[in-house]
Design a binder for these strands. Structure first.
Length: 236
DNA sequence: AGCCATGCACCG
DNA sequence: CGGTGCATGGCT
């Protein structure tokens, strides 16, 4: 996948100062993301210690920071290897009336393309109504997604199992002293999969680090897993 | 104490 | 009026 730099484009004066400051500070990476081993050399825009991108074009999830990120790490990258699970064969048409079957079939299809599911997000009301703005759990964000130096984030792309390509904005908000990670632009995917509140957005990645996304209706497991928060109905 | 869903103000 | 970013509050 690729990253689309927006900083150099015109019209983002607001970010310029921030970016400039970051650029200046980046000369010497002062801080690396908590948790992951990063930090090759400042000159490498997207090199990775243990993994490399095939480079070019329709590549993997490589993600540059705004203007030459200080933390060169970019790809998704669980330190562990991704293992396939042969055995389950997807050729069969899933019983679309059975959420469990759909979920299983989806997992199988992911395996077929060599992708491993990173995590699944049961869509909340705000995820759906928020114009494709999906909140991603911090822990997952920092383990599998590109490290972000700036709130403005980066543009990343992904594909689904039907070959469609999606472009998202991967960014974060500063919340208290922490971060709240957001994936913006998921509206199209939600539409393609007809996802509604309670349904699940699935994130997976291939060995090359590329991101694969999909969606599926909520399964029983999901439902019991995440009981719908009680929503006091405002009396009329 | 932290995390995340949502409310809401502000800006276009 | 819709979109963006922020701040708050509920819940774990």
């Amino acid at each position: 996948m690729e990253v689309t730099g927006q900083g150099v484009s015109s019209g983002l004066a607001g970010f310029t100062s921030e970016a400039a400051a970051a650029a200046a500070a980046q000369a010497v990476p002062p801080q690396v993301g908590p948790g992951l081993p990063v930090g090759p050399s400042p000159t490498a825009l997207m090199s990775e210690p243990d993994q490399q991108q095939p480079a070019s074009g329709t590549g993997p999830v490589v993600c540059k920071q705004e203007h030459g990120g200080a933390s060169g790490s970019a790809a998704l990258g669980p330190p562990s290897q991704i293992g396939h699970a042969p055995g389950v064969v997807p050729g069969d048409a899933p019983d679309t009336s059975d959420p469990e079957a759909v979920a299983a079939a989806l997992g199988a299809r992911m395996n077929v393309v060599g992708a491993s599911i990173i995590f699944e997000k049961p869509l909340t009301a705000s995820d759906v109504s928020g114009g494709g703005r999906v909140v991603v759990p911090k822990s997952v964000a920092e383990q599998y997604f590109p490290r972000l130096e700036q709130p403005s984030g980066v543009t990343i792309s992904a594909t689904d199992l039907d070959g469609r390509t999606y472009t998202f904005k991967w960014r974060f908000w500063v919340n208290n002293s922490s971060r709240m990670y957001l994936l913006e632009g998921a509206g199209e995917l939600h539409k393609n999969y007809g996802l509604e509140v309670g349904d699940v957005m699935v994130f997976a990645q291939k060995p090359d680090g590329s991101l694969v996304v999909a969606g599926r209706v909520a399964s029983k497991a999901d439902l019991k897993k995440k009981a719908p928060a009680k929503r006091p109905v405002p009396a009329a």
